[in-house]
Structures are given as C-alpha cells and as structure tokens.
C-alpha cells in the first residue's frame, strides 16, 4: 500500500478512499472531517461532519444549526472509520483548530490544517503528531516571513493611541480567531477600557467568552447610538471589509490598522491604505515551518495551499521528499 492509497488530493479536497471521507472538502461531500472553522476549510452542506466540539459550534454559528446532516464530536479518543483511525490534536491556529492523524495498517499521515506554534491566548497550543507523511500548509512559506513578537505589534497600537488620543483606532482583523486574539493581546498589554467591536464579530466574540476566554468589556461599534466623541482615542475592531463602508464616517479621524501576517510586506499594507500595520499571524512563519518539518522528520512532506514552490525548494535543499498537492479552493488572503 502506498501513502496515496490512504490519502490523495482530489478536486474536492484531500480524500481517504479506505474510510471514504474527505478532509476540509471545498464542495459538499457525504462525509467530511474538518480541521477548523475558517470558511475555506469548513463549508456548509455536507452529509456528515466530524470535527472538534468547538469547530462544530463555530460552524453552527456561521452557517446555522442545519449546516450539515449528521455531526460527531472528535474528542480525546481516536475515532475508527472503516478500519482507519483518526486522531485530533490542537493546531494552535484558532479556537477549536485541530490537526488530524490518520493511521491504517502501520501507516500514518498527519494533516496539519492551518497551524501556528506561537502561544495564543485564545486556543490550545500546537502539539506534535509525528507521522510518515506530514501534510503542511504553506501560507507564509517564504524566507522573508519571520513574524515578530505579537506583543511588540500591540505595542505599536498602544504608542499610536498615546500619540493620537483624539483619533479612533480601527483595527482590521478577521472575524474568527484573529479578532479575539487581538483583543486578548490588547488586554494583556494592560488596556482595560471597553473595546468596540463590529456587529459581525459579536457572535464569535460571545462564543469565545462562553468558552472561558476573557476578552474584557466589549461594546457594539455598529450600534446607532455610538458617537464620535465616545470612540475618540478608543479601539474599534472590525473585519477589514468594513473599512470601505460608510460606517467608517461615524468615527473621529480614524487611524486604520490591520492585524495580519501579510502586513510584513509593505506593498500589501499600502495597497490596503493601512496606516498602522500590525504583523500578527495565526500561521507558522518560515523559521517555524521549517523547524516543524525538521522536528517531525516525516518520510514525505506534502504541501498544500500557499507558497508551495519555496517549500519544495527547501525540501530539495535539505534532501527531503516533498510533494506539492496543488489543491484548489483555499484562500490565503483571509489571514
């Protein structure tokens, strides 16, 4: 049996023919395993979904309670499907995110989903799942990406708040994971004033708080009653798309920030009109990505969405077997 008999790429995503399941399929399938709740990995309309309880909750919040036919919670114990064993372990990416290890007749494959090795106050820490094959994401797989300490990036925001005490500070952050992480980091920096959040973040922030993650006092930033005077010198968190809407006019001379790993590249920040780029990423940077492969030392490294070419080149340079999967349908913009 070859590795590709246990798992291989298809148009709908990674497929395990033995168990007849897909992992993070990009189109509706009868049976799906989902690593985490980001929209490109977790889609609605499958026949059955197996995922962590938090990921299932998040999917229900985003797509409605009927997002799938049947559902099953992946707990600490492995799940058997047609003789294939599936284990879930934390990926350190967002709340509920998991890596999935398949084992069958002594052959093991770990699918990383998206992962990050920096400590993150909003989710469980990444754990190694050694396997014969490591399927890794490659969102930031270029040697130019070395993510700085996130607290230092929050420090930039704090400095700007002191320099411009009359301006509202808008921080763009994607709704699942990044927004809550940014809020938790701001709290860790000692900011205890209420933080204003865009309506589209409301449900996911409330869910994080239910799960015991302390985000402090949050106020709706999209309420009609919010005034310019009230938000001057305050922090407003919103999805980046909101910055192009008339809603922005409600704020006093806003400073536009954006928390994303892409902010390391000047032109990406400038093209979005960002004044306060904050390099905060929920993915592994180049040093952590290459370190992880070295530590796990798989027989083969399969590379999915992102900059596959560079990681392939690194595998070649370090005498490792690498394979680009060229899966389509995953986005790296929403980071």
């Amino acid at each position: 049996m070859r590795f590709s008999d246990l798992l291989h790429p298809t148009e709908r995503g990674l497929y395990c023919p033995v168990a007849d399941v897909y992992i993070d399929p990009v189109a509706p399938v009868p049976r799906a395993l989902v690593t985490h709740g980001h929209a490109d990995h977790a889609r609605a309309g499958h026949g059955a979904v197996l995922a962590t309880g938090q990921t299932l909750d998040i999917m229900a919040l985003r797509y409605g309670a009927d997002f799938t036919g049947a559902r099953q919670v992946a707990g600490p114990d492995p799940v058997q499907i047609n003789g294939v064993q599936f284990e879930f372990a934390p990926a350190g990416h967002v709340l509920g995110s998991a890596q999935i290890r398949l084992s069958h007749r002594g052959m093991t494959i770990t699918v990383s989903g998206d992962y990050c090795r920096l400590p993150n106050p909003t989710c469980a820490e990444w754990q190694p799942l050694p396997a014969h094959v490591f399927v890794t994401e490659a969102t930031f797989a270029l040697p130019v990406f070395t993510h700085p300490d996130p607290m230092g990036e929050i420090g930039k925001l704090m400095t700007s708040l002191r320099a411009f005490p009359d301006r509202a500070h808008m921080v763009g952050a994607y709704a699942l994971g990044k927004a809550q992480r940014v809020i938790a980091l701001i709290r860790a920096a000692g900011w205890d004033a209420p933080i204003y959040i865009h309506g589209s973040l409301q449900a996911l922030c409330a869910y994080h708080q239910e799960q015991g993650i302390d985000l402090g006092e949050l106020r709706p930033a999209t309420a009609e009653t919010v005034t310019k005077a009230e938000t001057a010198g305050q922090i407003v968190i919103a999805p980046p798309s909101a910055f192009n809407s008339p809603w922005m006019r409600r704020f006093a001379d806003p400073v536009v920030g954006f928390a994303s790993g892409w902010m390391q590249i000047r032109n990406r920040a400038k093209a979005r009109g960002v004044e306060l780029p904050m390099v905060i990423s929920d993915h592994v940077d180049w040093p952590d990505l290459t370190r992880t492969i070295q530590e796990l030392a798989p027989e083969e490294t399969w590379i999915t969405h992102g900059r596959e070419d560079a990681l392939m080149r690194w595998c070649e340079m370090t005498q490792r077997v690498g394979r680009p999967l060229r899966l389509v349908g995953y986005e790296d913009e929403a980071e």
Partner: peptide, 9 residues
C-alpha cells in the same frame, strides 16, 4: 528562494 521571495515582495 531569493527569486521566489523577490517575486512576492
């Protein structure tokens, strides 16, 4: 790796 990086940056 440098060429790929330069193309991106």
């Amino acid at each position: 790796l440098f060429a790929l990086s330069y193309d991106f940056v």
